[in-house]
Simulated assay, not measured.
Amino acid sequence: MELSTEIERLELNDIKNASQFYNNRYEGDYMDEWPTRKKRRVYELLLELGLPEEGIALDFGCGTGVFTSVIKQAFPRWQVCGTDLSSVALEKAKAKNPNCDFFRLDDPTLIYCKFDFIFSHHVLEHVSDIDETWILLSQLSKPGTRMLHICPCGNEGSFEHNLCRLKKNGLRQHPKNTFFYEDRGHLRRLDTQQMRSLAAKYGFDVCLEYYAWHHYEAIEGIIEEGLDYVRYLTDPIQAANDAAQNKLHRLRKQLQTIAMLRTLTDIVNRRQQKPEKSWKDYAVIAILKPLTAIPWLTSRILKWLADNEWHQRRKDPKGAEMYFLFKLSEC
């Protein structure tokens, strides 16, 4: 790991530096939006929880309020709040959700609040001290409070875990159990046993555990990032051994083919959107547009497979993302 990256990770352990780190990110379009399918999945899952018609909910680590909106949509009669350590993110969240309340994480009034439901989406991998975070979550809860956490999963067997095993240092011990391609703000990747242990340690019972990003959803997500990202992930030069190198070569060819086909659609769209088109533009559109049926069909098939995988395999722990619902003991 480069020294500069290691220093950045160490600085994230300090809340002031972490706040500035994320303020700088949120000045851009960091986490400004999530795929429609992901928001729909969270919305449907919230409806499955059987929560009462009224209550107080907290989006813990709400960022720009994308999932605060989803919570409010699922629970229209609830008071929905959000908290984050980034003031820049909170300003964006307030603009998106004028009917919700927002607090900075260090707001002294927050500790006096008690919530019926607490939600976090890809937050636990970012916090500097996981135990301090669970202590805070316990303080914000009352007997019977339910808490849903969605975060990266470190279990073995997912498509991404298997991919990382093919690379030298693909599975990193520092930061804890993370994958080589992960964002530098990720300080850990928890596995199932660690999540269960944390819950038990702080008095929460596990009510539900689901998993996603097993295979097809992971492939779709990787391809959505583009051709350069595919090449980076599957770079055979960094293979762990000869057998791994051969596997990476085969995987690279497969993923590159799909990613390259999708670029056809991008090329055609850019040419069509030009206000003034040359004869070359019309020629490119005429030649390539019929071919865009292939990436369109491929995309639809992958999305269908990913959706089906979620419904068929969400109890299979060999996924790269996990959904844990907890309930604070009432005794």
Rank of each mutant, 00 (worst) to 15 (best):
R172I: 11
K168G: 06
S141E: 05
D191A: 04
S141P: 03
H149V: 05
E224R: 12
I237Y: 10
G157I: 09
W213S: 14
F159H: 12
P175C: 05
G144F: 02
F180Y: 07
G226I: 07
E220N: 09
L140W: 01
Q194T: 08
K201T: 11
W213I: 13
G144V: 04
R184P: 14
D235C: 10
V206K: 08
R172E: 03
E225H: 09
M147N: 04
F179N: 11
N177L: 08
Q139D: 14
A218C: 09
Q194H: 08
F159M: 11
L148D: 05
P152L: 01
N162I: 10
S158E: 09
N169M: 12
Q238V: 11
A239I: 08
G226Y: 04
L140A: 06
L163E: 03
A239T: 07
G185M: 05
K201C: 06
E160N: 11
K142L: 06
N169D: 14
Y202L: 01
C151A: 10
Y211W: 12
M147D: 00
E160S: 11
E217N: 09
D242I: 13
C153S: 10
N177Y: 10
K168W: 01
Y216H: 14
I219N: 03
E160L: 13
A212M: 12
H186Y: 02
S141F: 00
H215K: 11
I150F: 00
L198M: 07
I222P: 03
I222W: 01
A244F: 06
Y210C: 14
D242C: 08
Y229S: 08
R231I: 04
K201A: 10
L198D: 07
P175A: 07
Y211H: 09
E220K: 14
T145N: 00
T145F: 00
Y232N: 10
H161P: 04
S138P: 01
Y216F: 15
L171V: 11
E225Y: 04
T145I: 00
K176Q: 12
L187G: 00
R196L: 14
Y232S: 10
A200Y: 13
M195Y: 12
R165C: 11
N169E: 14
